[in-house]
């Protein structure tokens, strides 16, 4: 079985207060040198059958209509071997 990973991130222009809260906590925890944090979502899809162009097209459609809200989020589809 092949795995397809869909990463969903807030668009760059959208404020991410959760990422900011993580970034602000880092120096307090002893992790220096991180100037910015953006928090996103990762979906790992176990695909039955071959990951061909048709399967990938369906996954992109799934990401666009459901996994991501493209008003506020971008997504990226990657095949993991």
């Amino acid at each position: 079985m092949a795995r397809v990973v869909v990463d969903v991130m807030l668009k760059p222009e959208i404020l991410d207060p959760q990422g900011q809260a993580v970034q602000r906590a880092l120096p307090r925890l002893g992790f220096a040198g991180i100037s910015d944090v953006r928090q996103g979502k990762r979906f790992e899809l176990e695909v039955e059958g071959p990951v061909d162009d048709a399967a990938l097209a369906r996954i992109r459609e799934m990401a666009e209509t459901f996994l991501a809200n493209t008003v506020i989020e971008d997504f990226d589809v990657k095949v993991e071997s």
Partner: peptide, 15 residues
């Protein structure tokens, strides 16, 4: 989410 209205809702700025 159903696109009957434009835009989207996000986590409150103050969390």
């Amino acid at each position: 989410e159903a696109h009957l209205l434009p835009g989207a809702m996000l986590r409150n700025t103050g969390l």
